[in-house]
Design a protein around this nucleic acid. Structure first.
Length: 376
DNA sequence: GATTCGTGGCC
DNA sequence: TGGCCAAGAAT
């Protein structure tokens, strides 16, 4: 009888799933620097689209804890999109250094430049947002829902996991994405789409976690089909990942008598695009260990300073670091001498900080300077 | 659809 | 230790 009565829409979710999730969110939401909490939202406070956009770009494939200090720093430096648009691109890259996925910073700057010319600022629709650089399907939906109250289906990794478990979807990712998107779209409530999106993500981050989900605390426990028909932790299924090859390279840290370090800027596109590096060999896996005689930026008494290991998304790198102490010299074409006190302020990706630290301990540590000690 | 693109924390 | 994962986008 019960089975017969629900047979027409046998796999539809109960109509009050969103309401129960929102009630949980009201009580258990995370307090985040870029978030307008539900109580304030109900009081009429509107999120700043610039804050929402900036945080969403930073949060792409990046943990909340890693983003927090960068978000605060960016807001302090550039309080609105006009300020960011007016900033030199190099300053933006320097501020982004360490956060990873550096094309995000380039796209961020390009997007700010564009939005600053629009009379109404950020577009308030999913399609309009989707057309901007650095904004894909997820981010467009997230900004549309959170900043503008649009009923968009916001699907990130958290939502994929929660939804796959809620509906016991056993199709592996990424094949299951369209089905998941449809399921989420059916759940989005008309009145609080932004809070719903953030509630799904908070649930995924704190309760419906990848490992050892805390199902006993889950507000959707009664609705979850993975609990009934299996082990929620096993979902979502995922296609096997490509292996991560090992590569090796050589980095050269040339130190002048006054402490200046020889550096250059990487090409705009590709790995670590637009970021600062010390001269180095290619990082091809085929190259045998440091035969480095041919690679140094100029002949000198290069001495091994150590080897650093670094893991990128698609390869692991062992980098042999050589150091040479040299006298006054012209920087080779495409290179520049960076004064000792300015090294820490360069747009150094983490792998380069490691390499420089191996040759000059303490060189990349940020310290007070006369430039920032007295001001502000 | 498959690749490329960082980094740090966790178990 | 090494694999996994994190509010994905661009090509």
């Amino acid at each position: 009888m019960a089975t017969a009565s629900r047979s027409i829409i046998a796999d539809a979710a109960p109509p009050d799933v969103a309401a129960r999730l929102l009630a949980w969110y009201d009580a258990h939401h995370r307090d985040l620097p870029w978030r307008v909490p539900p109580a304030e939202l109900k009081r009429g406070v509107r999120p700043d689209p610039y804050h929402v956009w900036l945080s969403e770009i930073m949060l792409q494939q990046t943990t909340v804890e890693a983003v927090k200090p960068y978000f605060r720093d960016f807001l302090a430096k550039w309080p609105d999109v006009q300020a960011l648009a007016a900033a030199p691109a190099e300053d933006v890259m320097r501020a982004w250094a360490g956060l990873g996925y550096y094309s995000r910073a380039r796209n961020l700057k390009a997007c700010a430049n564009l939005v600053a010319t629009l009379p109404d600022g950020f577009p308030d629709t999913e399609d309009g947002l989707r057309a901007l650089p650095g904004i894909g399907a997820y981010t467009a939906a997230a900004i549309a829902a959170i900043a503008f109250g649009r009923p968009a289906a916001v699907v990130d990794g958290n939502v994929e996991r929660v939804t796959a478990r809620l509906f016991d979807i056993r199709t592996p990712l990424p094949e299951a994405k369209p089905e998941i998107r449809e399921r989420v779209a059916e759940l989005v409530p008309a009145d609080r789409p932004g809070d719903f999106a953030q509630a799904m993500m908070d649930l995924g981050a704190t309760i419906c976690t990848p490992k050892r989900p805390r199902c006993m605390l889950c507000p959707l426990r009664a609705d979850c089909r993975a609990i009934l028909s299996g082990d929620p932790e096993l979902l979502p299924l995922k296609a096997p990942k490509a292996d991560r090859p090992k590569r090796r390279g050589v980095a050269y840290v040339a130190v002048r008598a006054d402490g200046a370090v020889l550096m250059r800027t990487r090409p705009e596109k590709g790995l670590l695009g637009g970021m600062t590096e010390v001269p180095s060999s290619g990082w091809d896996g085929g190259r045998a260990a440091p035969n480095g005689r041919d690679d140094p930026p100029f002949p000198a008494d290069w001495r091994r300073a150590g080897t650093i290991a670094h893991v990128f998304t698609h390869f692991s790198l062992d980098l042999d670091v050589f150091r040479a102490d040299v006298g006054p010299a012209e920087a080779p074409p495409g290179h520049r001498w960076v004064a000792a006190r300015d090294v820490a302020g360069e747009a150094l990706p983490t792998v380069m900080k490691k390499a420089i630290e191996a040759a000059i301990p303490g060189a990349t540590r940020k310290q007070r300077t006369t430039a920032n000690r007295g001001t502000i």
